[in-house]
Design a protein around this nucleic acid. Structure first.
Lengths: 242, 242
DNA sequence: GAGTGGTCTAGACCACATA
DNA sequence: ATGTGGTCTAGACCACTCC
């Protein structure tokens, strides 16, 4: 049953066929698609191959399969949106950074505690300014536990994204990133750095990086010029493979 | 080879085992995990079962498989964060809405054009106020093409999320939701509705809903009180099944 | 040529839902 | 009791990578 003239796998064709039927509106939210046995017959393929196709559709959020009942059409989860920080940072215009400072805050339990680092007194801070072209657009501040014998390389400071920096400097493996997005006021110093009026607000982004055992590994904050930066999110990436 | 005493499938156990090895740091970013043949032997299971387990890990972003080479450990994509609008709206405190108005803007091409609705002159607008407890937190405005014979039910206006409202009122199936997040200024009217000072900024969220053929189906904007609303996103949901 | 993952088969038994 | 999806087998051939 393997395709010859066309190189795409059978299970992929099946998934695309059903996807088109759903997106054309013939099958609506809640409808049952043909059973696996029926699809085996229709396409003259074995059941595992059918299931591979349905798995694609389920992953894309187009169907939901229920044991003993069948596979139901579901509206794609458009209320789940993905923010891709890499893409947000590298769109269109040239991005560059200037390093404002790297510090090791030693034996300051209060400082560490305030950030959320429990049982740790030594914290590395990294501060840099992000530019689009020649305009300053955001102030980044990063905080991570100081780990002896794991030096931070300058290239990591300049270019790497934050989870990568954390991964490189920690023994623990970062597995979760929680983000808050909010409106922030600019301090005089921040306004100066961003070449903005002191009275204007900014977009604030705070990231918390955790390990599997929920230990806080790193904190990152971005204060973004309100007219030069905006976050984009989209529902699309999830079904990108179909 | 099916498990007896414990009910969880073999492929799932395999995936969990490898996940633990990765998260413990024994296998690092870029390392090869055992080949499928080796895993077949180790677990004394068939290859399709091994592949089902590896598929779980790949979906969670913990490994990447390359044909002819093997499966490599990858750091989880912590730079891809998911905003769950349903969850953001239904966390902790009681959320309720008051409907401020529903209008049908007829034969106003300029109005439709400005929103991005091409070739359409009739637009439905829905405006409502969101409360947490007794505090107004956000003003929602929604715009969608008017479709004859597809009435909007009041229950839909009050409770449903926007993509659902669009799906119910349109022939076309909504398949993509693009979102922008930004800092907005409050108009006098908006400040009044939110019981806020007129000079203060707000968090703005704009959603654009598209069909498969990239036709704009709906637009939603939220203007959120800066101290009473914040967006949360997390990297975790993707690997939630493991 | 040897080793790897990608696709596919033709069965089997099981758990669950429905009537 | 029947029909559904969930798990699993023991093979097979293919495409690709690397030596």
């Amino acid at each position: 049953m393997r395709n010859r003239e066309n190189l795409i796998p059978v299970y992929y064709r099946l998934a695309e066929d059903i996807k088109k039927i759903i997106e054309s509106g013939v099958l609506k939210d809640g409808d049952l698609i043909p059973t696996e046995a029926q699809l085996c017959e229709q396409y003259a393929i074995s059941r595992m191959t059918v299931r591979q196709g349905l798995a694609l559709l389920a992953e894309a959020g187009l169907i939901e399969t229920v044991r003993g009942k069948g596979s139901f059409v579901t509206r794609p989860r458009l209320n789940q949106l993905v923010i891709d920080l890499n893409h947000n940072a590298t769109s269109k215009e040239q991005i560059r950074y200037t390093l404002l400072g790297v510090n090791l805050i030693r034996n300051n339990g209060e400082f560490a505690e305030k950030l959320g680092f429990t049982g740790e007194a030594n914290v590395i801070t990294i501060k840099r300014l992000m530019f689009k072209g020649n305009l300053p657009v955001a102030i980044e501040e990063k905080f991570l536990r100081y780990q002896k014998g794991k030096p931070l390389l300058e290239t990591q400071l300049e270019y790497a994204d934050f989870p990568e920096v954390v991964a490189k400097h920690q023994e623990s493996v970062p597995v979760r990133n929680d983000m808050r997005i909010f409106v922030a006021a600019l301090s005089a110093e921040q306004a100066n750095l961003l070449a903005a009026e002191g009275s204007q607000p900014a977009l604030g982004i705070k990231q918390l990086i955790y390990s599997e055992d929920d230990k806080l590994l790193g904190v990152a904050t971005m204060i973004c010029h309100k007219d030069r930066f905006e976050l984009k999110a989209t529902s699309y990436p999830l079904s990108g493979r179909l």
